[in-house]
Design a protein around this nucleic acid. Structure first.
Lengths: 270, 270
DNA sequence: TTATGTGAAGACGTTCACAGCT
DNA sequence: AGCTGTGAACGTCTTCACATAA
């Protein structure tokens, strides 16, 4: 997943819903919402599972953690399930959200339809660039970073989205946390450190691509009838026997490590 | 995760690297690259783990799948590890990527620094809007969807990024796959169906926020000294005893399901 | 008869704790 | 003396298969 935890040992508390299940509830909810809009009254675990892209046993097990909301021999009532899952996820209440860092990505997030439609409300857009201040993005005027603390406390915001460059992320994070935010969605390619009790999830483009590249590489290898598990690449690789010893300055071949630029999300400074 | 699988039973092939480990390699790589830029020659599992935000036992176990690249009593050679991980991930080769759907999000992706810096090269930007055709985004001219197949085969592209609205995603996906793409990173909030052998990973904003909301809701409950596992909300909830029976049209209270708009990424049509 | 709900089995992932090198 | 590498223990997630209910 393009994704980070930050919790107590997962299935922590006695009647707690497993983390893996929580992560799938939004998927079910989306599929159910689509059915609801088509006025489909009931759905079987098989049908719903296929719409959500999981298998039906998993789906039934997931739902069993929420309670017994189905009817044997029939299936699940769509409207009822939509409501139960929404409530379980906390979407029956309103969640004001602030987005910090209004570059291309921040603007994309601000415009994101899925926000408004599910209990989330963009309460404010914040950027460090004074030139942006006052300019509306997605109909919401951008405010300057100086206002951050005030905005958060005035609006009772508890969820923050960080879409700044990597270099600014930890600092922004600290201010958000100090201002009372307890859940953070981080788009900057950095590991954020936060105090106990604050949740961080990360979305990291570059990581996702690298994972794809890994599998892509394997595919290319298998095509050529390579022995299982090892792609052909440039020889027997992790050469069973320990490498000729970690050389002081590598067996390199790598390009000169492409400057300092590193990994930044596409944004203006914030 | 913000993230989806699509593989054979995970640790499939005999000497295969566990999926969970693969997902962490990019994290280690980033931390190592930072050390490399600061010319740090070696690093211990403890230090590196802390920089990557994992614990050291996990990191050592992960590395053990790659081979024995460390030196007991000393630690790991930074440059050497950077190279080994890069190679394992397939980043020593060049991966041309196409981005389909050049709205705010697509533009953000095109500008993303992390792309270029790690073996990925934006080979083309594609959008369905004829008005965009020819206009440069991040220095690359946008091309029309009609050219999709040609672009992919001419450039030998095997990785595609979908940043279109949900409605267009499956169709774009089908064309990408037909044109020969075997790895897809999907930003559209839809379940894509693809043939065997094609990898899909998804990044889904709305899902991440919903997961945060779930935990946020729990926190709010616990503060008030609620019994473990159940937030106070609006009564004893999944009321232990089966619900008064799945009512035909729900116990509702839900708002009128906020239009049809649903969940779209913030983009222009593509 | 049909489809849910769930124990039990199995696969996978993480953590522990220490043997083995340097 | 110090830190890696890894079996073994443990926990979590998935899948199976069937009893249970409509």
């Amino acid at each position: 997943m393009a994704t980070g935890r930050n919790h107590r040992p997962a299935t922590s508390r006695s009647r707690g819903i497993p983390e893996a299940t929580v992560a799938r509830l939004p998927l079910y909810l989306r599929a159910l919402t689509a059915l609801s809009e088509r006025s489909v009254p009931t759905v079987s675990s098989e049908e719903l599972a296929s719409a959500a892209g999981v298998n039906s046993a998993k789906l039934r097990k997931d739902f069993s953690y929420l309670g017994s909301y189905g009817t044997r021999g029939v299936g699940y009532d769509v409207e009822y399930l939509v409501y139960q899952i929404s409530r379980e996820l906390g979407l029956t209440q309103d969640w004001p959200v602030v987005i910090v860092g209004i570059g291309n990505l921040g603007a994309a997030l601000a415009n994101y339809g899925g926000f408004a439609s599910r209990g989330f409300r963009v309460a404010a857009l914040i950027d460090a660039d004074p030139g942006l201040a006052g300019k509306p993005v997605a109909g919401i005027p951008v405010q300057h970073t100086d206002e951050l603390e005030k905005i958060i406390s005035d609006n009772g915001v508890s969820i923050g989205v960080i879409a700044t460059p990597a270099g600014a992320a930890q600092q922004v994070c600290d201010r958000l946390v100090a201002a009372g935010i307890t859940s953070i969605l981080n788009f900057a390619p950095t590991v954020l450190s936060v105090p106990e009790g604050v949740d961080v999830r990360k979305v990291d483009l570059s990581i996702e691509l690298q994972i794809l590249a890994f599998h892509e590489q394997r595919k290319a290898g298998e095509e050529l009838g390579a022995p299982p598990g090892r792609r052909p690449g440039e020889g027997p690789e992790a050469d069973t026997a320990p490498p000729a010893a970690p050389p002081a300055v590598a067996v390199t071949k790598r390009p000169p490590e492409s400057g300092t630029d590193g990994d930044l999300p596409a944004v203006m400074p914030a």
